[in-house]
Amino acid sequence: MKDKITNIRIAGLGGMGVLKASLILSELLFEEGHDVKKAEVHGMSQRGGSISSDVRFGKKVVSPMIPEGEVDFLVSLEPEWSDVHKVSMKDGGIVISPADFDASKLASAKAINVAALGVLSRHLDIPENRWLEVLEKFFPEKLHAANEAAFKLGRNS
């Protein structure tokens, strides 16, 4: 009936970089020529509460919010709280969490979001150099090397 839409939900707690990760991901998908929509709620969540962001891409995306049972990839940055989104997943959907890489190898715990994008990158057909180019746009130069290392840690884990 319609061209396939891929649905990615990034979830965690306020302050973990959920919104930053979804912004990077959606900008990359946009630059790769997809129709992209991203939806989230700001506000109270920045006080350490639960937060999630939906990124949908494909030929033509209609609603910016992922319908129930249609999440293809759940990037769960704080499994204790964000694994609850598993109820919204499609059968056979993939969960990505910090357990997928050795977080102790990160220069800063703040880069967990970027490392998780590295894991996600293995499932999306986009060259590594494109990910790294877009990542650089979203961080000051002094953090480029650390973020590249975090991304590769996730991608190569």
Binding site: M44, Q46, G49, S50, P67, V84, H85
Partner: peptide, 29 residues
């Protein structure tokens, strides 16, 4: 509103409830 709620309104399904996902409430830092 969500896609699922729109489907429920179209179907006249008054028993539909948006799934409650357990949330960590915001708190003072």
């Amino acid at each position: 509103f969500t896609v699922d709620r729109a489907k429920a309104q179209i179907a006249g399904d008054l028993s539909y409830e948006t799934p409650v996902i357990k949330q960590k409430p915001p708190q003072l830092c």
